[in-house]
Design a protein around this nucleic acid. Structure first.
Length: 919
RNA sequence: GCCCAGGUGGUGAAAUUGGUAGACACGCUAGACUUAGGAUCUAGUGCUUCGGCGUGGAGGUUCAAGUCCUCUCCUGGGCACCA
């Protein structure tokens, strides 16, 4: 009987669909397990072989957990709002909803072919009102919340208001930039607009003037992580700095909690490290430097307060508000010229240009301890957006300050011994303090707390922790996103009622900004409330819809809440999340923030959303190259190309097999190659190879559909996993897929003669059982560790051994089919059914390996001679001393080592015990 | 510059706590069966001057090192004037 994979796969996919095999419900009798994939953005290009890598891995794990008796939630959906659909709409006039729908349809077809066990009844799409209602709802909750540092959680703004009404700002400790103080009666005298202005500075979702990454080509604001090297991540358009009123989320309030909670997450160290760097906690102090001849002061943040006696100048960022105050009339012209230059330059240019630039303001500060005059400079190496936008410069112990001082001939004063500060700065945090009155002679690590204490007690500043993380800018001047549930009443931002949600995205006549520069929603007719107030015209960014989608999967049809308490308490959190590292500083931070916020408000029961995270690597394209002899129609095989002057062209990888070009197909590929001639090697045209991004323009895109057509999806799934560790990035190379195909074929042949299905009911031999149990043990462990490639190898070995033993025994094969099931579900179902089982293979139990059987067979023992040498040899457990000695001497290596030694002292002990003794 | 991750055959890669490096698969070589096929099966396949040598390189610890320590080189990823 032939292995007709296409028929088998069609049959079972249909069966699973008709019988709703993968539908899940909250079943309290079984433990839950939530396996989540990062849902895809449905792009027009469809899936290539790289996309399903993570999905296959999660599918294997989900199926495995099911077989282990868990109630597995394994959903899929679409991150459907986004720029490409909108760009396409601007170019073609096609509504993004239409193209998105088409793309989703295509994605679904492709995904279905791979045979995933998704519960499609739980599908979510971020662009649907039933879904984004809850994105808007969460935004409203953030609008109505503030962050209380005392209880260290989000609280209702209504409570804040009643505190203001009672005591003004007295006793309030909030995450805010607001520093003024007012009394209860001040508050009651504020008008509505003033009150709201104050409250905005406390709300977790708030409106603020911010410097934003403005992308003129896209007509929108981009988040920091959407900008790469000064151009937009999508499209590569230039980005500039611009001040705009934008909705923001107070992510910074959660910085410490985001950092702390990471400890207990099962994420890779490198990913945790990335998030840590992104959050960028630094401990230090804010220090006040009074400005000479003024009642004002400069505030600076420093991580090295111990070097305060080494300050020889101060530097302000070009954006600083203090510049006007400190600049003297004599220096004004120079300062203005400098600021003119610095401000025109975009952040990008400033970053690229590493030359040192700056200007003296003419003004001075007083040193807080020595009371000496310190000159104030302006320099663009100081950032307006970090710390206080001003620094105390210690050229002796900071590389950048040192370079600045050398350039402008400013004195360098050593305060920590250990280097030669005239030659280069000494930045290390070790050494003894010198030239530093109060802290002379102390080590750096002791000097820091001592000086901070002095600063604190003398009122010269305070201990301070700074974060690099910024609040998330949440407005986008785009069409294809969630509208804000906000309107403006006499210019005051006002929330809609929850009962008004969802606020649906309006129809517009075109998808670009209006002539007057308003966002596309400015084109909508009647974009206002029933009583005529204008609605917010921005929409939310891409990460809005993806921040809580995993919660929605728990209860996707609920129209009373994001997720019901019952569903949330059953599913709790994501046990396993699979996706790429590219979301490390975007989605994975915002999601954690969003979840913590909902946790504070009591809507979810877990503070962290993703318990374990596995990062799959990227699949790169493997391009094939051909070489044309310049000025001719001759193409020369790779090995001969050095003899000619050639130009290199990319060739469609689909007309190349094992790097050998199909020359006839090549002639037909493009009209201008129809007369191509070939200079061959051994009758073949060998192509060159390059590993690059998988992209249409490089003709290296491999479509999973083609592979599935040829080998079947079970082979495709196995091969993707067999390619190597899933965490690793690697180029796609279809050569080698034959191997896993042959494995399935062998498996099939264990049960089938040429004519029919055939299994034997004979009892298995010890050898056969050994093969089986070794395999089960290995695969079981490998799945848990995500070593799918070695797990597949183990199955191959087992099938090879069984084939050698001509074993077609039911007892063995029934178990083996279930082991194979997570990897290749279709063939497993088919074989399972042929074995005479009524239930599907996916509800059977994953077999348990018989450990006692394995232990009886072999036993690894270390051998010790004269209490010194120890090494291992596999021995049957029931060997007598004589047999052991015989076995030991039969071992080549052992024999060499033991030659001439007294075997009476040979001691054989179980391995585990020896290890314990040694340690 | 700083922080991660990783360097093993012609290729993708294996290798519990240090214990016969290269499992498994591709590719290659030879053979079998075949009136030819990109099918199947069998055997071989790290290098070698047949002494040995081999996990990027140089040292070290150990009876024993791909694995542990020190230095160094290379590749991939992240951050990048963060005071």
């Amino acid at each position: 009987m032939k292995y007709e994979f296409l028929q088998i796969e069609d049959k079972w996919q249909k069966f699973w669909k008709d019988n709703q095999t993968y539908k899940v419900t909250e079943d309290k009798s079984r433990p839950k397990f939530f396996v989540l994939d990062m849902f895809p953005y449905p792009s027009g290009a469809g899936l290539h072989v790289g996309h399903p890598l993570g999905y296959i891995a999660s599918d294997i794990f989900a199926r495995y957990k099911k077989l282990k008796g868990f109630n597995v939630l394994h959903p899929m959906g679409y991150d459907a709002f986004g720029l490409p659909a909108e760009q396409y709409a601007i170019q073609t006039g096609q509504h993004p909803a239409v193209t998105t729908e088409q793309n989703i349809k295509r994605y679904r077809e492709q995904l279905d072919k791979i045979g995933f066990c998704f519960d499609w009844e739980r599908e979510v799409r971020t662009c649907e009102p039933e879904y984004y209602k809850w994105t808007q709802w969460a935004f409203l909750k953030m609008f109505h919340s503030w962050y209380d540092k005392k209880s260290d959680k989000a609280q209702a703004v209504s409570e804040l208001v009643s505190m203001f009404e009672k005591n003004g700002t007295q006793g309030i400790n909030a995450a805010t930039e607001f520093e003024e103080e007012f009394t209860a009666s001040d508050w009651s005298n504020f008008n509505e607009s003033k009150k709201e202005e104050v409250l905005q500075q406390f709300r977790i979702a708030y409106l603020a003037d911010t410097m934003v990454n403005w992308c003129p080509a896209l007509g929108t604001v981009l988040a920091n992580d959407e900008v790469k090297d000064g151009v937009s991540e999508r499209g590569g358009h230039p980005v500039e700095q611009k001040k705009m009123k934008q909705w923001c989320l107070r992510v910074t309030a959660y910085a410490q909690r985001l950092l702390d909670a990471m400890e207990n997450l099962e994420w890779t160290d490198s990913l945790k490290e990335m998030q840590k760097n992104w959050i960028g906690r630094s401990e230090g102090a804010t220090v006040y430097f009074p400005i000479k001849d003024s009642d004002q002061r400069m505030e600076v943040f420093t991580t090295r307060p111990d070097t305060v006696y080494g300050v020889t100048f101060m530097v302000l960022a070009p954006e600083s508000d203090l510049i006007d105050l400190v600049t003297t009339p004599e220096q004004k012209e120079k300062v203005d010229t400098y600021l003119g230059k610095a401000r025109i330059r975009s952040e990008r240019e400033r970053m690229q240009d590493k030359t040192i630039s700056g200007v003296f303001t003419g003004g001075y500060c007083k040193h807080p301890f020595s009371n000496e005059d310190i000159p104030i400079w302006i320099g663009d190496y100081v950032l307006g957006s970090y710390g206080t936008g001003a620094i105390m410069a210690v050229p002796a112990h900071d590389e950048r300050d040192w370079a600045f001082a050398k350039n402008f001939d400013i004195p360098i004063v050593e305060v920590v011994s250990g280097g030669n500060v005239q030659e280069e700065s000494y930045d290390a945090k070790s050494g003894k303090l010198v030239n530093s009155e109060l802290i002379n002679g102390l080590d750096v690590k002791d000097a820091i707390p001592k000086i901070v204490e002095e600063i604190d007690s003398r009122g010269l500043g305070f201990r301070k922790i700074n974060f690099r993380l910024r609040d998330a800018i949440f407005s986008r001047q785009r069409y294809w996103g969630e509208p804000f549930p906000i309107y403006f009443k006499d210019g005051v931002p006002t929330p809609l009622e929850e009962s008004d949600l969802p606020l649906k995205l309006p129809e517009v006549d075109a998808f670009k900004p209006t002539e007057t520069g308003e966002p596309p929603l400015g084109r909508a007719e009647n974009w206002k409330t029933k009583d005529g107030h204008p609605l917010e015209m921005s929409t939310m960014p891409g990460f809005a819809g993806s921040s809580a989608y995993y919660l929605r999967y728990m209860d996707p049809k609920n129209d009373k809440g994001l997720v019901s308490k019952e569903a949330n308490e059953y599913w709790q959190d994501v046990d396993l999340y699979i996706g790429g590292t590219e979301h490390a500083t975007g989605h994975l931070i915002y999601s954690r923030f969003w979840n913590k916020f909902l946790y504070d408000l009591g809507y979810v029961c877990k503070e962290e959303p993703f318990k374990k995270l596995v990062n799959q690597g990227m699949i790169q394209g493997r391009s094939n190259l051909v070489y044309r002899v310049k000025g001719t129609k001759q193409f020369v095989s790779q090995g001969l190309k050095s003899k000619y002057e050639t130009s290199t062209l990319h060739v469609d990888v689909n007309i190349v097999e094992n790097d050998i070009l199909d020359t006839e197909a090549f002639k037909k590929w493009r009209p201008d190659f129809k007369d191509a001639e070939f200079l061959l090697e051994d009758g073949k045209y060998n192509c060159g190879v390059a590993n690059e991004k998988m992209s249409k323009s490089l003709f290296n895109v491999v479509n999973p559909d083609d592979i599935i057509e040829k080998y079947g999806t079970d082979t495709f799934r196995l091969y993707e996993m067999f390619l190597g560790p899933i965490q690793q990035s690697k180029p796609w190379n279809t050569a080698g897929i034959e191997g896993v195909y042959r494995f399935l074929l062998k498996f099939w042949k264990l049960f089938h003669t040429d004519e029919k299905f055939e299994v034997s009911d004979e009892k298995a031999t010890p050898d056969e059982l050994k093969s089986l149990h070794k395999c089960i043990k290995k695969v079981d462990g490998d799945i848990q560790n995500f070593d799918f490639n070695t797990g597949i190898s183990a199955m191959m070995i087992c099938v090879n051994e069984l084939t050698d033993q001509k074993c077609n025994k039911r007892e063995i094969l029934e178990k083996l089919v279930i082991v194979l099931c997570p990897f290749a579900p279709h063939i497993s179902e088919e074989l399972w059914q042929q074995l005479g089982n009524n239930e599907t293979a996916t509800v059977a139990e994953f077999p348990v390996h018989d450990e006692s059987f394995l232990i009886e067979t072999t036993w690894s023992c270390p051998i010790s001679v004269n209490g010194k040498m120890k090494f291992l040899i596999d021995l049957p457990m029931d060997f007598s001393k004589d047999q052991i000695e015989e076995a030991v001497m039969a071992d080549d290596r052992t024999k060499r080592l033991l030659e001439g030694k007294n075997l009476a002292k040979l001691i054989v002990v179980p391995k585990k015990i020896v290890n314990m003794v040694i340690k």
